[in-house]
Design a protein around this nucleic acid. Structure first.
Length: 590
RNA sequence: GGGGUCGUAGUUCAGUUGGUUAGAACGCCGGCCUGUCACGCCGGAGGUCGCGAGUUCGAUUCUCGUCGGCCCCGCCA
């Protein structure tokens, strides 16, 4: 038997018992005479003592132990000598007096110390991920991940959801992200795609009468990576039949409340605030606003129209917008700092950044001369300017104004330390538009996805003014992080075909890509809808880490490389031949 | 595809306004040490300054390129 107990779980209850422990040598303190080892396993550390008085041979053996050796010790649990207890250790009152030692496996000196506090570059950590994962603080993230997935499953099971698997080798679909392709050997020249989401299959499951489905499922998207985006990631994916949007939001809110309080004892505000897409854009310049701080955007179109400021008036005449935000207590910023803000604004597409400082006597800036005193006072009132504030204005096309002020708001919020990181601020964003117009592709694209149902009252607009149609779609946003999104789906074939048409997908294309869905919709498809949560993002949020790489056991770098295995890599030409694949260009040798 | 930033012992970093022998801490190796827990003390080893080219009498330092990590824009239904 390798062990009778976990190292970190030994307590005074085992006093005087003989125990056997197996684990890694965390630290060695060799005093020549007595030698101490902190022995580590998943559950924690315990001090084991090698004393020559107990066994000269074992003490000799212990002298040769090194970091990360895997050993097995047998000995008696004893109270530590008075005054030598270690209060920072859960096992700090006891120690193991070792009578027998087996070196199960020696270890090379690790490239970095297995210590929580040790700061190591991420690339080294990922190359030696198995060593990095030995660190308690890193393991903690994965324990949290496990607990969260269990809590979610528990909730969904209790609410009558069935877990079902959907294929990973599936059909490539147009729209959306790039697919990862997998060549089919049995069908030369054809390819499977790895799913970007189980979307179509879960809808088919509803048509099958599963009624409620969920899956904690891996999804794949061949797009560029970010701190919150990996090529493979995990979603909590679910779908329900015979529900409306309200029922889904209510149930999901219950789920989030429950699992957040279960795994992290977080009490979220109840009910979650809701914002329509339009409100979110108007007030925060973003469809995933961080509502933990103010600095809200204010509309100044009306005031600007009455001013003599050409820049603003021209924009308005062309149908643009003028909005502003109040950078609290930023009047003290130097010319240089304001220039930096301007650069930031321009990098987001603004042509410039107008500003005014609020002082005791009113607004001060080169541009105030274009505004009558009463207009200046209106501006100050609208933005609630107090002495010492800096007012920022952007005039441009609506989308640019939102983008620029939305990102300025965020960076100012961070810079001015307005964000209380202990607060969790959830939010439903609803009433998304169904479609947007893609200027480069010169066609409509789906905001959520092509299967989201239009709002019933907007159905007539599908013909007359499609961009005005709102979708029965919703996002869950927490602290500015998009944690999940979903919609009521189209369950009538005619409407689905109509939406494909609006998206510029020909009938032939629709049939060849989604024919199975269009057909299934004609066999008694129930009204249905669902949602998918970004599980990695949720864990990262709860763990308080910036990057989802911290909560994925074996993540990839920004170039999509696994530093541990060196995937992706070249393959044997024979493999390619079997798959009828020929490389067009030789790849550079690594 | 684009912008930014970083790359110096095993690790985290300092440094070099272009110049003989590139430093610190931790880690590692050896010795001493019977109550430590970031043990202590003494000694030691360890470097293609990411890679390549250019400028120069001389490049880790300057220039250009390149590779890689990270952050961001585009992209991500």
């Amino acid at each position: 038997m390798f062990r009778t107990h976990y190292c970190g779980k030994i307590t005074k209850a085992e006093l005087d018992e003989e125990v056997t422990l197996s684990g890694w040598v965390h630290r060695r303190r060799d005093h020549g005479g007595v030698t101490f080892i902190d022995l580590r396993d998943r559950e924690g550390l315990v001090q084991v003592v090698f004393n020559p008085q107990l066994s000269e041979t074992v003490h000799q053996q212990a002298h040769g132990l090194r970091s990360e050796y895997v050993i097995q010790v047998t000995g008696k649990v004893a109270l530590r000598l008075e005054g030598t207890e270690n209060t920072s250790l859960s096992t700090g009152e006891i120690e193991i007096h070792v009578s027998d030692l087996v070196i199960l496996n020696p270890s090379k000196t690790p490239p970095f110390l297995i210590e929580d506090e040790e700061e190591v570059s991420e690339s080294l950590r990922l190359k030696y991920r198995y060593l990095d994962l030995r660190r308690a603080s890193v393991q903690q993230h994965f324990i949290l991940r496990h607990q969260l997935s269990q809590a979610v499953r528990q909730f969904l099971n209790d609410n009558n959801f069935l877990e079902a698997d959907t294929p990973y080798l599936t059909k490539s679909t147009p729209e959306g992200a790039r697919d990862f392709l997998v060549p089919s050997r049995l069908n030369p020249g054809t390819f499977y795609a790895l799913p970007q989401s189980p979307q179509l299959f879960k809808q088919i499951l509803m048509i099958s009468g599963f009624d409620r489905y969920y899956q904690v499922v891996r999804c794949f998207r061949d797009e560029d990576l970010r701190s919150d985006r990996q090529p493979e990631f995990t979603q909590i994916d679910l779908e329900m039949s015979f529900v409306d949007q309200e029922e889904i939001l209510t149930l999901m809110e219950k789920m989030i409340l429950k699992v957040f309080s279960e795994v992290q004892s977080l009490q979220l505000p109840e009910p979650f605030p809701r914002l329509t897409f339009q409100e979110a854009m108007d007030r925060f310049g973003s469809d995933k606003p961080d509502t933990r701080f103010g600095l809200e955007l204010k509309d100044l179109c009306d005031i600007a129209r009455r001013s003599d400021f050409k820049v603003f008036r021209t924009v308005l005449e062309k149908g643009g917008k003028v909005k502003g935000l109040n950078a609290k207590a930023c009047a003290k910023l130097s010319r240089k700092e304001i220039e930096n803000l301007t650069d930031e604004a321009m990098s987001r597409g603004a042509k410039g950044l107008a500003w005014m400082k609020v002082s005791d006597i009113g607004l001060e800036a080169p541009i105030t001369k274009f505004f009558k005193p009463e207009l200046l006072e209106e501006i100050r009132k609208t933005l609630e300017g107090e002495a010492g504030d800096l007012l920022l204005f952007v005039a441009d096309k609506e989308q640019v104004v939102y983008d620029v002020l939305g990102s300025l708001r965020l960076s100012l919020g961070k810079r001015l330390n307005l964000i209380d990181s202990s607060v969790f601020q959830p939010l439903w964003v609803t009433d998304f538009p169904l479609l947007a117009f893609d200027g480069t592709e010169k066609r409509h694209v789906a905001i959520h996805h092509p299967f989201a149902a239009p709002m019933d009252e907007d159905l007539p607009l599908l013909e007359s003014d499609p961009l005005k149609v709102r979708a029965q779609a919703y996002d869950l946003v927490v602290n500015g992080v998009e944690l999940g999104g979903g919609s009521i789906r189209i369950h009538k074939q005619e409407i689905q075909s109509k939406v494909f048409e609006l998206l510029g997908i020909s009938k032939e294309d629709a049939d060849s890509k989604f024919g199975f869905l269009l057909e299934a919709l004609q066999y008694g498809a129930p009204p249905h809808g669902g949602i998918a949560f970004g599980f990695d993002r949720m864990v990262a949020l709860l763990a308080g880490v910036e990057s989802i790489r911290e909560v994925i056991p074996f993540p990839k770098t920004q170039k999509g490389i696994c530093l541990m295995t060196d995937a992706p890599s070249d393959v044997d030409p024979l493999q390619l031949k079997e798959l009828y694949i020929k490389k067009e260009r030789a790849i550079k040798a690594p």
